[in-house]
Simulated assay, not measured.
Amino acid sequence: MAQARLLVDLPDGPWVADVSRAFPDTRFQVLTATPGDDAGFALVRITSSDLDAVLTAMRAHETLAEVSVMANDGDVATVQIEAGTPLLLVAAQRSGVPIEMPVAIERGVARIDITGDHERVAEFGRQLRAIGLEFDVEYVQQRINPGGSLTERQRELLFAAVDRGYYDVPRRTTLTELADHVGIAKSTCSETLQRVERTIVREFVSDLPRQPLETDADATDS
């Protein structure tokens, strides 16, 4: 299995390309996306210091049939949208490789993570070019699947922790700040991250070849 991350330059026209370029400091995260017969439906998290203006621009965009605000915390809103089927989903369907969520979009560029056999991953790239989308490949690597058994909520918290620099050295955010950002208690945040870390480490280790640990006595005998 191969895992790839692509940075796709979205063309002008689709709402997320136009609005994200008009508000370059705004971050869009597509949490779920479902194609329909004539339209696509998605749940999108928007982080912006000018959230009201962003929502106004979305409602005014001709490609959006519906914008429903599900939650609004001032600088972060979760909205449900209905629009034409996104080109990225078209490429995914044609190549038979799923796009991993969330998809982050800023300044008209979408960060796409995909996993599949090498041929399907390559076909996804060919399909993107076939529908006129340009992209850069950030990386392609052999997939070791730590975190494959995480729940959706655990994944969301992990992505938030990474995005906000909780695992940077030195850390760019504290546990308290991270908990406040995702809207949960600090104790819940700490316990959830511990479960996430335990799961990822165990799954990662299970994929590694085991070798006996050389002790000081073994080194002396040799």
Results as ranks from 00 to 15, higher is better:
104 A>L: 15
63 T>D: 10
204 F>W: 14
206 S>L: 05
113 D>T: 14
197 E>Y: 02
44 V>P: 06
157 L>A: 08
172 R>K: 15
216 D>Q: 11
92 A>V: 00
73 D>G: 15
102 P>S: 09
5 R>L: 11
79 V>D: 01
72 N>Q: 10
109 V>D: 01
191 E>Q: 15
112 I>C: 03
54 V>H: 02
164 R>G: 06
84 G>C: 02
83 A>C: 10
25 D>S: 09
143 R>I: 02
177 E>N: 13
184 I>F: 07
98 P>Y: 06
120 R>F: 02
96 G>H: 00
43 L>E: 13
125 G>P: 00
2 A>I: 02
64 L>E: 06
145 N>K: 09
40 G>E: 06
177 E>F: 08
28 F>L: 01
86 P>T: 00
82 E>M: 12
36 G>A: 07
65 A>C: 09
62 E>G: 12
78 T>S: 11
160 A>C: 05
215 T>Y: 13
183 G>W: 10
203 E>V: 04
117 D>E: 11
167 Y>F: 15
222 S>K: 11
12 D>N: 12
172 R>V: 09
184 I>Y: 07
142 Q>E: 15
47 T>H: 10
38 D>C: 06
168 D>L: 12
85 T>R: 15
74 G>M: 12
135 F>K: 00
126 R>G: 04
5 R>F: 06
146 P>K: 08
17 A>W: 01
97 V>S: 01
104 A>R: 15
46 I>G: 01
136 D>W: 01
214 E>M: 09
22 A>Y: 06
218 D>H: 04
198 R>Y: 04
147 G>F: 09
169 V>G: 07
170 P>T: 13
90 V>S: 13
120 R>S: 07
121 V>M: 00
220 T>I: 14
125 G>W: 00
35 P>I: 05
44 V>I: 14
165 G>W: 05
206 S>T: 12
76 V>D: 07
187 S>K: 10
35 P>C: 05
11 P>S: 05
178 L>T: 00
142 Q>A: 14
12 D>G: 12
66 E>L: 15
222 S>A: 13
38 D>A: 13
210 R>M: 10
186 K>Y: 11
